[in-house]
């Protein structure tokens, strides 16, 4: 009989009309984001040894990093991701041997100005050479202990300030 299918379709529509709503009012309510979500990147600066494996793994050459030799170690001075070209494939995170690069659940990377789009994860000055040299020139025994400790404090103290500043500036301009 013609029209039977239409009535059946309307019955389904009627049933769905009373079904609970699945949509959420987005900015106020948000869905939970899974653990493995490919969102904004974070770099654990203390773990990073500036090897550049992530930059090599990237299919789109998104990551650019600069390093400087301080003493015997490579010191990461600049780590920038041109996030507008990022494919969010996760090959960089996977390539990291030191487990330093991570995804976060933050997906909102909108910027008001084009110049703010690149994600600057590290930007800092290398510690001054003289600070390093006494440690280098010291005896063999305290050298391995002193050397990592001295720049480590620098590392923790230094990146925090400029990073926060730049973020605050970006946020200001973004608004």
């Amino acid at each position: 009989m013609f029209g039977k299918g239409l009535v059946k379709g309307l019955q389904i529509t009627w049933k769905e009309f009373w079904a609970p709503k699945l949509t959420v009012q987005y900015p106020e309510k948000q869905h939970t984001v899974p653990e493995r979500f490919h969102g904004k990147f974070v770099l654990d600066v203390d773990k990073c040894i500036a090897c550049g494996l992530c930059a090599n793994a990237c299919p789109n050459r998104v990551i650019s990093l600069n390093k400087q030799k301080v003493g015997k170690k490579q010191y990461l001075t600049d780590y920038q991701m041109n996030i507008q070209y990022c494919l969010f494939c996760g090959l960089c995170v996977e390539s990291c041997n030191k487990d330093a690069l991570h995804f976060t659940k933050d997906f909102n990377m909108n910027q008001y100005f084009y110049k703010n789009i690149p994600l600057v994860l590290v930007r800092r000055e290398a510690p001054a050479e003289p600070l390093e040299e006494p440690a280098m020139g010291g005896e063999d025994q305290p050298k391995p202990k002193l050397k990592p400790q001295a720049p480590k404090e620098e590392k923790v103290a230094k990146p925090a300030a400029p990073a926060a500043e730049s973020e605050a500036a970006a946020g200001k301009e973004g608004q």
Binding site: E16, L22, P34, E35, R36, F37, L87, F88, F103
Partner: peptide
């Protein structure tokens, strides 16, 4: 109605791979 189920499947894929569509 079809998009409702697709959303559920993509949520599962997202949980597995981290992305909704471009899974890699």
């Amino acid at each position: 109605l079809c998009f409702r189920e697709r959303e559920k499947m993509m949520d599962l894929l997202e949980e597995l791979t981290g992305s909704r569509m471009t899974l890699s």
